[in-house]
Design a protein around this nucleic acid. Structure first.
Length: 571
DNA sequence: GCCGTTTTCGGCCCGACTGTTTTCAGTCG
């Protein structure tokens, strides 16, 4: 995936052009390209391969050529040239919140500062204040900004973000002046990781909300405290923004605050073409300034002649075009899920007995649940020997008789060994209702070897689902390098499902790859990988990924009823 | 630098907060 690399080059170029005070619209063009490349649902290298770069919005002849150059050489001449015109370290200074091109330039020209280290030293020694236009406050903000960048660069998992925002939302709801309170931003779009929490509040007394918000218990620093908009840093180092609007602007503000930025820019373009203007207060007639919508989200889209677009799709990845043609997908919902096909019991590294899992799944209203403990090789996770796994299958038989009203499937999360073979002999494999396969060791093999391993496992004809296909673990392990195109082709051919692993630290496949899988004709399965019955609720996170991937009910294996599922498992 | 139901030139999304300033530039989302 070269998208981030390409976006990074263009982002830096935009910064450099800003320092050089180049044409603001040229800079904006680069910024737009950055947004669009980051939100691209496919690998830019692939797009380049088929000569369709210029179909990406915001990419014309010039930028397409630059992308091609980056892909071919890993470098960009234009970038090197610009970089030479700007003192070393200036881009680094601009990573500090509050420092843009103008201040970076001032700091360099008046104090010779060209690295974060120097900046930190000079700020501490009070050598910043006194530069024309910069005083004590700026100096303090710079010191704080440096601290901020040092601690707070990691993104939270969606789960952490939801937990954190829930505290602020309930606190704000308790305020007498508060009307509606809702978490917006990337959290509402259910992005798998979240940087900042954005909360929207309706009220007639915005100042009262603002004053109460900045004094909430978890607040460590106040970054901004205005009359309708404030930002704080929590004790955990997370930025929380709250914006207050009048109830009559709720819908418009919700669209604005939910984003994504690329989505917002796009709908504002559409508005402009219709002679309208969109801001966080409403949709207005550009000439008369008359308000034509604002109260509800659906009204905003309606004014733009669009159906309402689910928040999970608002990434400017084609959802606006699809909406205008009436071709938005009917997104899968948690209530469509009929069972969980990847759950661990106490037999390997889970915490609960099979009976407890069966009862918990039944209580969730599931039709079926698969108990899929680890196989022999995965010793660290209590992988079962062939002898023990047969005992486990017997136990499943006993629980079936005891717990009625749900179908228990005897399963395994089987290791795909270094050579691509499966971790049990054939006669043992015959005993399972469902086989989920995964790689748990040998991550550092080459891309070709890893890909071949998974393809070989699928070609045994025994595997129903490949679990957490890329192995990524948020904050702990990058996805291993796979030729996903090859994996998709093999999955389609062998009728193997790929998993969206709903565990909050995994969410693997991710939204972009899941969507690519769907487009390649592959079915997906959304499973929790629970090791504890409470974790069965993680299904919500997996379904969120599926929604962001444009998946419909029919694209997901475990939305099928039991008889349909059993037909598939016989394959 | 991109783009077109305003189509190859002349536009380009929109507004809040801060700090330092006397009306606004810089920065952010």
């Amino acid at each position: 995936m070269r998208n981030e690399q390409v976006a990074g080059f263009f982002d830096d170029i935009a910064d450099l052009l800003e320092i050089l005070e180049d044409n603001v619209f040229k800079i904006r063009a680069y910024r737009k390209a950055v947004l669009n490349i980051r939100s691209l649902s496919e690998d830019v290298e692939k797009v380049a391969g088929v000569g369709r770069l210029e179909e990406i919005p915001g990419i014309g002849k010039d930028l397409a050529a630059k992308i091609a150059e980056i892909i071919k050489t890993g470098k960009l001449k234009h970038y090197e040239v610009l970089k030479r015109k700007v003192p070393e370290g200036m881009l680094e200074l601009m990573t500090i919140p509050g420092i843009g091109p103008k201040k970076a330039r001032l700091l360099y020209e008046k104090r010779g500062i060209k690295s974060l280290n120097e900046l930190e030293k000079k700020a501490k020694a009070h050598k910043i204040s006194g530069i024309p236009g910069l005083k004590d406050k700026t100096e303090e903000n710079i010191s704080r900004g440096i601290e901020l960048v040092k601690k707070h660069s990691a993104r939270m998992s969606l789960k952490e973000a939801l937990d954190l925002s829930a505290g602020f939302v309930s606190g704000l709801k308790k305020l007498p002046a508060a009307g509606k309170v809702i978490a917006a931003g990337s959290l509402r779009r259910m992005k798998d990781t979240v940087r900042d929490i954005d909360i929207l509040v309706t009220s007639r007394k915005p100042q009262a909300i603002m004053d109460a918000f900045v004094k909430m218990p978890d607040v460590k620093n106040v970054l901004a405290h205005g009359s309708t908009k404030s930002a704080v840093l929590t004790t955990g180092g997370v930025q929380v923004d709250v914006r207050v609007v009048d109830e009559n602007s709720f819908g418009a503000a919700l669209v604005y605050f939910t984003g994504s930025q690329a989505h917002n820019v796009h709908i504002r373009h559409i508005a402009k073409r219709l002679g309208l203007k969109v801001n966080e207060y409403g949709v207005f007639d550009e000439k008369t300034d008359r308000k034509v919508a604002g109260k509800e989200e659906i009204d905003i889209y309606k004014a733009l002649k669009l159906p309402i677009i689910p928040p999970e799709l608002r990434e400017d990845r084609g959802e606006i075009e699809a909406a205008s043609k009436g071709r938005l997908p009917e997104l899968i919902d948690v209530s469509d899920i009929k069972g969980d096909l990847h759950v661990h019991s106490r037999w390997s590294d889970g915490e609960n007995s099979i009976e407890e899992i069966a009862r918990a799944a039944k209580a969730k209203g599931y039709e079926y649940i698969a108990i899929t403990d680890h196989s022999e090789s995965l010793k660290v996770a209590g992988g079962l020997s062939e002898r023990d796994v047969l005992k486990k299958i017997d136990e499943i038989g006993r629980v079936r008789k005891k717990v009625k009203g749900i179908t228990l499937l005897a399963g395994v999360e089987i290791d795909i060994l270094q050579d691509g073979s499966l971790d049990y002999r054939k006669n043992i494999l015959d005993r399972f209702d469902i086989i989920v396969a995964a790689i748990h060791a040998g991550f550092k093999q080459s891309k070709e070897t890893l890909t071949a391993r998974i393809v070989k496992a699928m070609e045994t004809g025994r595997v129903h689902i490949i679990s957490h296909p890329t192995g990524r673990l948020k904050g702990a392990r990058d996805p291993y390098d796979l030729a996903l195109g090859k994996i998709f082709r093999a999955a389609k051919q062998t009728k193997t499902c790929l998993e969206i692993n709903a565990f909050p630290d995994r969410l693997d496949l991710d939204d972009i790859n899941s969507r690519a899988a769907k487009e390649a004709g592959v079915k997906l399965a959304v499973n929790t990988d629970s090791h504890l019955v409470d974790q069965l609720d993680y299904m919500f996170f997996g379904v969120s990924v599926a929604r962001r991937a444009w998946l419909e009910k029919k694209d997901v294996l475990n939305t099928r009823g039991l008889s349909e599922l059993l037909k598939f498992l016989k394959k």
